[in-house]
Nucleic acid binder design. Structure first.
Length: 336
DNA sequence: AATAGTATCAACCGCAAGAGC
DNA sequence: TGCTCTTGCGGTTGATACTAT
């Protein structure tokens, strides 16, 4: 028979809230609190679903909310946290007083994602993807590149292909004009040229081409052994699995050593094709282990999200200048 | 000035897990 | 232990505002 609806939809108003409705809800909650959202609309004289009331209150009416633009510092915080926890908007929002998960999510989707993408950084992995894909582009035929770009970077395929096209030209120019190859397309292209990670990835890409189906389906982190291991915290810091190089460290070191670390720049995209995020890899209810080997659970169980961030391995308990990708820093400093 | 395209963000949806019985 | 209800979450949608042509 399916799921029981949370309320009688026929008798429920939907869409934008009016000021009168806001007043009714606010004054009711001021008097009675927020216990039992199902009853609140009834008691407050609102023809709304309880869920809708809760959302309106938490995302808009709550008196402690900020409604203005995101500050530079807030944006930096979002980017940093997203690089560690992925799309765990509630966790990120918990670090930003006055901001809701919806705010953060919207801001990420409408502004920050594009900003990073425009900077040549994959917003999913927070790694500069251009140098890697350019390497691949020099060795593979375009259809293969397109296929792999899609598999590896999912929803950023278009941006990637754009960069690839540009990069291929740059590389060709570089090769034909040695010494003049001033590649300004994307930051970090020089720094990682010898990165053996690239070689490893290329090797795996070659294998992927031979077995195209493996890309979206191969989810090693779902296997019992890998899953268990990947959920562990190494030394108290987050370690994410990669199907290519073992583990990708998503802690300060990987920022400090951007692009030169042991992790695969595309490991996260690789893992689920188009929609994988760090958050999906450390699912909210997976058991995690802290540095003492004690289990805890991510996400919803952690009512006070700061508990994660106040451990000995506080990823951002470090001066932001030491932590954040220099590319980010530059971009944020140039923030319009 | 009109229209089309794009960006923004409030609101909705379904799912999953916790709480309580 | 299992069921129901409630709550929280992340993804998605749609209305509106804004910009370009």
């Amino acid at each position: 028979m399916g799921r029981i609806p949370c309320c009688e939809k026929d008798n429920v108003k939907r869409g934008q809230w009016t000021p009168e409705e806001d007043n009714k809800l606010s004054s009711y909650i001021a008097q009675h609190g927020t216990r039992n959202w199902r009853l609140i609309p009834k008691n407050a004289g609102l023809q709304r679903c309880g869920k809708s009331c809760r959302l309106r209150w938490t995302n808009y009416l709550r008196p402690d909310l900020k409604h203005g633009q995101f500050s530079n510092a807030e944006e930096q915080t979002i980017v940093k946290l997203h690089s560690v926890v992925g799309n765990r908007w509630s966790l990120i929002a918990a670090q930003l007083p006055g901001r809701t998960d919806n705010d953060v999510k919207n801001h990420w989707n409408t502004k920050l994602k594009k900003k990073l993408s425009g900077m040549g950084i994959d917003p999913v992995t927070h790694k500069p993807f251009s140098h890697l894909m350019a390497e691949i582009a020099t060795t593979l035929a375009p259809p293969q590149v397109a296929h792999l770009a899609e598999a590896a970077l999912g929803c950023f395929k278009d941006e990637m292909l754009h960069l690839l096209t540009k990069k291929r030209i740059d590389f060709q120019l570089q090769q034909s004009n040695p010494g003049q190859g001033n590649n300004t397309t994307v930051p970090y292209s020089k720094q990682d040229e010898k990165d053996d990670t690239v070689e490893k990835i290329k090797l795996n890409l070659s294998r992927a081409i031979q077995e195209p189906d493996m890309l979206p389906l191969n989810k090693p982190w779902e296997s019992t052994s890998t899953r268990a291991t990947s959920a562990n915290f190494e030394g108290g810091c987050g370690v994410f699995p990669t199907s290519v190089t073992g583990y990708h460290h998503y802690g300060p070191s990987s920022f400090a050593n951007e692009g030169g670390g042991s992790g695969s720049p595309w490991s996260q995209s690789m893992c689920t094709g188009s929609t994988c995020t760090a958050g999906e890899q450390v699912r909210s209810h997976e058991k995690l282990k802290d540095e003492n080997g004690e289990e805890f659970q991510g996400g919803k169980e952690i009512k006070n999200a700061t508990s994660i961030f106040n451990t000995d391995c506080v990823l951002w308990d470090i001066p932001s200048d030491d932590l954040i990708n220099p590319i980010y820093r530059e971009a944020f400093n140039n923030k319009e």
